[in-house]
């Protein structure tokens, strides 16, 4: 992994030096253990800020559209920058989605793909520690060695703290890239796809209701899920529209439900299951289950997966005569 990081830095330095790109979007170390922060590198001198490790959890596609927006108040000619970005499988699929939805231009992007064995979920490490904080952590190929703020040490198997999305990830390499570095990742895990959804679907309506009441009563309406999501680029979210006003501003269950269900519907046929919403949630709500249910429906109804290539039309933005129409009701 150290070697991949070194290669990444060298490649980015070259790209910045020869003018292929103006800015590179990558990950840098954050001050707390097991945390990284997105970074924007503009000079070959800064490439040592870039890191590549098992905690590059953020979906960097989220940070791209802002770079292609004309600066507010700027008069006259403006050429959008040439942007480089490092992409795991999920980031690259989100990039494909954003290109197709015309939020970012393919011809101004240079994508460096890196195969991914899955990223560590900081919340899971926190849960393994219990009520104490995380003072320090060391990661190797197989385990995470953590020290709690109470001074106690613990070795955790990395497989036990991988993000849920990563455990089931079927696309571990970038689906779109200008350059790939690092080794081919090991083959996708043999986890039954949508096992969590199937289990949930087997519950009674009452149990399902209780599950979501429990989860969503934790929501504090901070919108971290929405802001971390590459698909949530709307200038004005339905949640905040005032004319018409679709939902209230409170943390009453009815308001929270409308927000999360509305957001999930807007993800239909678009969610790549990157897990950014789950990682961002300060309350540890499992929003993935909601999105996975919709992904499963799209996959079953239209035999389609989301954002695997630029060429293929997306299930919900195209029409085929053989599309499932069982949902239609008589007029």
């Amino acid at each position: 992994m150290k070697q991949v990081e070194e290669t990444l830095r060298q490649e980015v330095a070259k790209l910045l030096e020869d003018g292929t790109i103006d800015v590179f979007v990558g990950h840098e170390a954050a001050s707390l253990p097991l945390k990284t922060s997105p970074c924007f590198v503009r000079s070959p001198k800064e490439v040592d800020r870039l890191v590549w490790n098992r905690i590059c959890t953020s979906n960097l596609a989220t940070y791209l559209p802002q770079l292609f927006k004309r600066p507010v108040g700027l008069k006259g000619e403006w050429t959008p920058p040439k942007v480089g970005v490092v992409a795991k499988g999920c980031d690259s699929r989100s990039i494909v989605g954003l290109i197709k939805e015309k939020q970012i231009p393919r011809d101004r992007l240079f994508i460096i793909g890196i195969g991914c064995e899955g990223m560590i979920d900081r919340h899971s490490v926190g849960r393994a520690l219990g009520v104490v904080g995380l003072a320090d952590a060391k990661v190797d190929d197989k385990s995470v060695q953590v020290i709690g703020t109470d001074g106690r040490e613990k070795r955790i198997d990395i497989a036990d703290v991988l993000a849920a999305s990563c455990r089931e990830c079927q696309h571990r390499e970038a689906v779109l890239s200008n350059l790939t570095i690092g080794e081919t990742p090991s083959s996708a895990p043999e986890v039954s796809h949508y096992a969590n959804v199937a289990e949930f679907e087997s519950k009674s309506p009452q149990e399902r209701w209780e599950h979501w009441v429990g989860e969503l009563s934790r929501c504090i309406r901070c919108y971290a899920c929405r802001q971390a999501c590459p698909n949530c680029y709307c200038e004005e979210c339905f949640a905040e529209e005032t004319a018409p006003k679709w939902l209230g501003v409170t943390t009453d269950l009815s308001d929270v439900f409308v927000f999360h269900l509305g957001r999930a519907f807007h993800q239909a046929g678009r969610c790549v299951d990157c897990g950014a919403c789950v990682a961002a949630c300060p309350q540890g709500i499992d929003l993935r289950l909601l999105n996975q249910k919709i992904n499963k429906d799209v996959e079953e109804l239209f035999e389609a997966q989301v954002s695997l290539s630029l060429e293929e039309a997306e299930a919900l933005s195209s029409f085929r005569m053989e599309d499932d129409q069982s949902f239609m009701t008589e007029p």
């Binding site: 997105p38 924007f40 802002q66 901070c222 971290a224």
Partner: peptide, 9 residues
């Protein structure tokens, strides 16, 4: 500002 996601956390 580029890093900040604009959430209210």
């Amino acid at each position: 500002g580029l890093k900040c996601l604009g959430c209210g956390t």
